[in-house]
Simulated scan of single mutants.
Amino acid sequence: MRTGTRAAVVCALLCAATLPGPSALAYARQVAQAPPAVSVTVAVTDGTDDAEAGRRLDYRVTVHNLGTEDVHGVRIEQRMPATTTAVTAADGVVEGRGTEERKVTWRADLPAHDIQVFTAEAVLGDRPAGAATAAPGTLRAAATACVYLGGSYAPVACSGDVDDLPESRAEEADGGGWAWWAMAAAVAALLAPGAVRAVRRRRAAGPGTTG
């Protein structure tokens, strides 16, 4: 009886020692809840480097899951250029109206090694008054695309596309320059005959003559 009792006590102690404590259980829960490591890339392009007011831009957002695990609940967001006046997107949700920032959101699952393409169309408007230019006579029309996991606000990948948007006031500046030269030519034409007559009178009077 004593031998059996001692064996039971030792077994109980060994079993208790092998059971996870509170800290071990908490760590296990954190590991189970942590999102899996992902390797995702994104690229956005409209196929051109130049744009202008009233032109439609066809954007392609390409998302590639480089990992060996499926990624579920992916959110893809594309922010349109500041001058955008209209947006359409297949299978996407468009946000923003009027002068507000335009954004398109898609949701998808990415199987391992999968590549998916999302498309959107944007129409650009006139440049905003007083906007700073990135180069003389031009304004940048920039769009960005980012990939998020679930409800996270920290992207796992981002990409951008930039186009040169001609400044609408460039023609007005050129027109003002031509107008100045035309006015100068007209003034010269009016003054030229009087100057010629003055030179002729001075030559006819001979050297040394004044008054």
Rank of each mutant, 00 (worst) to 15 (best):
T18R: 10
A28L: 09
G47M: 05
A51I: 03
E69T: 13
Q33R: 12
Q30T: 15
T48W: 00
A34T: 14
Q30E: 15
V71L: 06
Q33F: 04
V31W: 05
R75C: 04
Q78A: 10
T41D: 14
D70E: 11
E77Q: 12
G21Y: 01
V40R: 02
A17V: 05
Q33I: 12
C15T: 15
T18I: 12
A32F: 02
A12V: 15
C15R: 10
G54E: 02
T18V: 14
V74S: 07
Y59Q: 00
Q30F: 11
R79C: 02
R56I: 05
P35C: 06
C15Q: 10
A26F: 02
T48Q: 07
S23Q: 12
P81K: 01
D50L: 08
A17S: 09
D50T: 13
M80L: 07
V42R: 02
T62G: 03
Q78Y: 02
H72R: 12
H64L: 06
E77F: 01
H72N: 11
D58G: 05
V40Y: 01
I76H: 03
E69S: 12
Q78T: 10
A86H: 11
I76L: 04
G73K: 07
V63L: 02
L13A: 13
G54T: 03
D58W: 01
A86W: 10
V40F: 00
V40A: 04
A51D: 09
D58F: 04
R29D: 15
T85L: 04
H64N: 12
A82Y: 07
V31M: 10
P81E: 05
V61M: 03
V38G: 09
A34N: 08
T83P: 00
P36G: 15
V61G: 03
C15N: 08
E52R: 01
A16W: 09
S23R: 11
N65S: 05
A37R: 13
A16M: 08
A51P: 04
L57Y: 00
E52A: 04
N65K: 03
V87N: 02
T41E: 10
D70G: 09
A32L: 07
A12M: 13
R79V: 11
H72M: 07
E52K: 00
V40K: 00
V74D: 07
E52Q: 09
R79T: 13
V87L: 01
T85G: 01
V71A: 04
